[in-house]
Design a protein around this nucleic acid. Structure first.
Lengths: 145, 145
DNA sequence: TATAATTAATTTGAATTCGAGATAAATTTT
DNA sequence: AAAATTTATCTCGAATTCAAATTAATTATA
């Protein structure tokens, strides 16, 4: 290692490669289920965190407001979610997962999780614990920039 | 932690968040220089690794063949690279960074590296070393899938 | 109150990427 | 040598995303 900056660069490179490799596998799986990654992310958010105003979805999964409209339209066309007007504030629209959407995610999520577990099998329990701790520290500090 | 799978899922989530947070900062910087992230990746590859057949660029930075044509067109329009026919195999075209391109990357790369170093400053030297080792192991095992 | 400022959702248009198919060149097989 | 296959690049259309502009509703302020 010639200096500290190049160590940081190396960390950036390995992080990028690992993320892309894992993500590619995860996305392939999601696409076999007829969703794109963004659709999956929105649906999973609603499934695990309940109804959300459209605007907040953008903040949570890092998506521009124009993109939210697009992806929510798609999911609504597929019958996996529906829009509900907020009675208190007519500017606000809630996205709510439908029964069909719940069934759908309920079926594929466990497999999704298991596949991720398989992808991570090169690390031991303790190594994962260490990796989680370090990467979380890194991510949190950047998020605050 | 309820079970091993959820630990892996957690690692996936922190990895995704950290990558996205860092990448967002890096991309913002690149865009202030008038390039998109793919253009930067191609140019940096040529700068550090020398001339490349178009087809190999796709393999190294994970890009479909149609996209390579597009990005190389853009960089050629900007005068940052040029195409060279391969004399031995007329199917092959090499991408070569121009003097203008070298000057350009030579100016922004050190700043790029320094910014990444700043983004990583929440981890100590040893923590980075540990993170590199673990993430590399993870990425390599997935890459072989 | 009315005016201004802010916030939420949508629409529009441009940029980027992929995938499928087309074309051209080289290599291998028959 | 001719045919078939492989390889490299490009073209085209579809999908996805963002940014900017628009519309509508709410909140703050003079």
């Amino acid at each position: 290692m010639t200096n500290e900056s190049s160590q940081s660069l190396k960390l950036f490179i390995v992080l990028s490669r690992a993320y892309k490799a894992i993500n590619e596998q995860v996305n392939k799986f999601i696409q076999t289920k007829g969703l794109n990654p963004t659709e999956f992310a929105v649906l999973e958010l609603l499934y695990h965190k309940g109804d959300q105003p459209l605007q907040q979805i953008g903040g949570k999964i890092l998506l521009a407001s124009g993109s939210i409209t697009y992806v929510v339209d798609k999911l609504e066309e597929k019958g996996l979610l529906k829009r509900n007007a907020c009675p208190k504030d007519r500017r606000v629209t809630y996205a709510q997962i439908t029964e069909e959407g719940k069934t759908f995610i309920g079926e594929i999520f466990p497999e999704h999780e298991e596949r991720i577990h398989d992808l991570m099998s090169s690390l031991s329990h303790d190594e994962k614990e260490t990796a989680i701790e370090l990467i979380k520290k890194l991510g949190l500090s950047v998020g605050k920039y």
